[in-house]
């Protein structure tokens, strides 16, 4: 299979791979560079590198648009929803993996079936529930539903807890630890990589959520970054470098999370089959 390193075939493969990287990276580079152009320059042609670099778009976005507020809201929702959701999933996964009780299998099957129910079906009824408990236009509308844990999370974490030798649980039990303590002190630390994988997936899903904020949030001061930037696209149709600056800012957390946890993301997306 391996030829000499500089055979024409190898060469062609490199050209393909680099070519595709350029295609994938280009829109991001274009985005960054265009966000440093002024409006006149953007309108006057499509050269890639700005002639007059300006930072005004970023100033505009921070001062005239509640961008900082958007970022705060997004961070608030993402962090609370992720942490709470994962804790609940882990707790339930532990129950299904280690505790013996009547109806365990039936209940777990019910959890698995939930994984197969598409979100569209529950979208409207959940909206009505959220509305009737007075959570419309509140960030909590996007946080509380996650705190029940997710079927996929339970399934995924349970697999990992099952692979921990059961003797460990037995001996802790012998020493008189209650199941909740065993869960917190032993099992949570032992499945850290799995938790990290799930956390990264959840972080990305909440940060990028579009339909949730569209349904539940109305006022600009409650908006998340992702939906916020698509809103002020309308306000700034003619001034699109400002919008691009916003888009770029919204991608910074994604990029940071991606860089620091790429192995977890890759692994997570491979198993979940999502996206």
């Amino acid at each position: 299979m391996d030829q000499a390193n500089n055979s024409p075939l190898k060469w062609m493969q490199y050209v393909l791979l680099y070519g595709l990287s350029v295609v994938i990276i280009f829109p991001f580079v274009w985005l960054l560079l265009s966000s440093f152009k002024d409006n006149i320059e953007i309108m006057s042609g499509n050269h890639i590198i700005p002639k007059n670099w300006t930072f005004d778009n970023y100033v505009t976005i921070m001062t005239e648009i509640p961008m900082l507020g958007f970022l705060k809201n997004s961070l608030f929702i993402t962090v609370l929803a992720t942490v709470g959701g994962i804790f609940a999933s882990a707790m339930s996964a532990f129950v299904f993996a280690k505790l013996v009780f009547k109806g365990r299998n039936v209940l777990f099957t019910m959890v698995l079936i939930v994984m197969m129910i598409p979100g569209v079906v529950t979208m409207i009824p959940l909206f009505i529930i959220i509305k009737s408990i007075g959570l419309m236009d509140s960030l909590w509308a996007l946080i509380l539903p996650s705190w029940t844990g997710s079927a996929f999370g339970v399934f995924f974490l349970r697999q990992h807890m099952m692979s921990i030798p059961h003797d460990l649980y037995e001996s802790a039990k012998m020493e008189g630890c209650n199941p909740f303590r065993i869960f917190i002190a032993m099992y949570l630390p032992l499945i850290k990589p799995a938790l990290a994988t799930l956390a990264v997936l959840n972080f990305i899903a909440h940060w990028n959520d579009l339909i949730g904020p569209l349904i539940y949030l109305n006022s600009p001061e409650k908006m998340t970054v992702t939906v916020g930037i698509s809103y002020f696209r309308g306000q700034y149709v003619t001034d699109y470098p400002v919008v691009l600056a916003g888009v770029f800012i919204s991608l910074i957390p994604t990029f940071i999370v991606f860089l620091f946890s790429q192995k977890y993301i890759t692994r997570g997306m491979l198993i979940s089959g999502l996206k």
């Binding site: 609940a88 999933s89 707790m91 339930s92 532990f94 129950v95 505790l99 013996v100 009780f101 009547k102 365990r104 209940l107 019910m110 959890v111 939930v114 129910i117 079906v121 529950t122 009824p125 959940l126 529930i129 539903p145 705190w147 029940t148 844990g149 997710s150 079927a151 339970v154 209650n178 199941p179 909740f180 869960f183």
Partner: peptide, 21 residues
């Protein structure tokens, strides 16, 4: 069983919500 019941409360609310929805 008692512990299971306690620890499963959040998830139980979740599945109940989804099934009833």
């Amino acid at each position: 069983a008692a512990w299971a019941f306690l620890l499963l409360i959040p998830l139980f609310i979740g599945i109940l919500l989804i099934y009833s929805s």
